[in-house]
Design a protein around this nucleic acid. Structure first.
Lengths: 241, 241
DNA sequence: CAGTGGTCTAGACCACTCC
DNA sequence: GAGTGGTCTAGACCACTGA
């Protein structure tokens, strides 16, 4: 087995790219153990020390997880990336996921803004989804989601019959798209008339607006999403080091 | 030179503790280069590889910074921890710091809540500071800050004549307290009558409330701070991986 | 027990910075 | 050129997991 990328790059970078490629290509899937570090190193003709260093850096980034005595596993990063980390949990049990309701699901031509966010040509075919998340019929989150139709065409028939609480695992299992890294931008806003009906609160109530650009392992944009959380439901904790 | 901590712990943990102790004790100060990794390893009678691993982990955490060919330096983590990362910059130049105005500075007996946050006994002596931050006389941030009087007594005379834009470097230089790690909790709130006057906006205007607990390298609580940002000035970007 | 990751060492060679 | 960190190797030994 040979490494593909530019031989002028440091070896650990090239090995890292190779491992990420295998994860992207689903050669190794979430929950499955990778080969041992010694066998991986032998396969790529590098030293075990270098392989360890690469694996450690991917563990640091949350791509892999290691368990002493058991093995190295691909992380399913879905909890970490859930929008629910911005929502204050009360009422029902701590670990219950809120019910997802798809309010609208259509295919459109991308406007200039959406094309730009998704790195597509203006007019390209995109999927738009309007979705609410609720606990005991109290809506805590509303999402407006845009996806490339080309990459997510299999999603449409799937969502005719299903309304799963988490979408990212579905992107993975149905469309073969594994999400990796997101950038969230938070601002305070007021609720639009459209979403006010969904939340059942007055128009212009105070809320948080969370704009997310989600990337895959290759760094390409996978999804653009704008979410709204009512003021009294918003809560966010962050550690700075 | 011998390591102090429990010899049953892994060596890299003990070395890490030793390095952090030296930073806490100001044996190495911000901006100054540490000895080379080979000399450090020799001094502590460990291999260079292990020393490298420890240093790398502290770089990862933001405690140290390395520059190829120059050396390893203690990070001055003040930009990273500034509350201004929650404030949207417009108007004036990008890199100008807003003017700080101390509105109130007193010594009090800690209430139960404040004592609990600062890990002090109720009734212990604490410093309370009420401070505003403004660009061109537009207030963008108001802070309510509590500190242990015992640890920060030197701050009071200093702040009689100075109103520095950043406090953490002052904690370091005047009181010998080096901040390290903070936990911020964000919620949406409305502006109190007291702060409404400072911001010159109506009472109950929408704002972000940011509660911060700041720790030092030893993990002890250094400061408790509650800050408010008006809705139109709040902006926050976060990357999830 | 075999297989996995975790710890630690010793040393070679390269690349960058500053004098 | 001297000193720094960056890359890479080779191998020993330990600790945890599961059959």
């Amino acid at each position: 087995m040979a490494l593909i990328t530019d031989a002028r790059l440091p070896l650990h970078i090239r090995v890292r790219d190779e491992l990420l490629r295998r994860i992207s290509d689903r050669i190794w899937t979430a929950g499955e153990a990778l080969p041992g570090e010694d066998r991986l190193a032998a396969e790529l003709s590098i030293s075990v020390g270098t392989m360890r260093k690469v694996i450690q850096s991917l563990v640091q980034e949350g791509v892999l997880e290691r368990v002493h005595g058991k093995g190295t596993f691909v992380t399913s990063a879905f909890e970490r990336t859930s929008m629910l980390r911005f929502v204050r949990f009360r009422g029902p049990g701590e670990n219950t996921l809120p019910k997802a309701t798809i309010l609208q699901l259509t295919t459109k031509k991308a406007s200039g803004e959406i094309a730009s966010k998704l790195q597509l040509k203006p007019g390209a075919s995109v999927i738009y989804m309007h979705r609410s998340r609720s606990y005991d019929d109290e809506v805590v989150l509303v999402e407006h989601i845009w996806l490339s139709h080309k990459r997510f065409s299999k999603l449409l028939p799937y969502l005719q019959t299903e309304s799963p609480p988490l979408l990212y695992p579905v992107y993975d299992s149905v469309c073969g798209v594994l999400v990796h890294r997101a950038i969230d931008e938070l601002e305070m806003d007021s609720i639009s008339s459209e979403d006010a009906k969904v939340f059942d609160v007055p128009v212009n109530s105070s809320c948080m607006r969370i704009e997310r650009v989600m990337h895959d392992h290759a760094g390409d944009v996978v999804e653009w999403r704008v979410s709204f959380v009512p003021a009294n439901r918003f809560h966010y904790t962050v550690e700075i080091r």
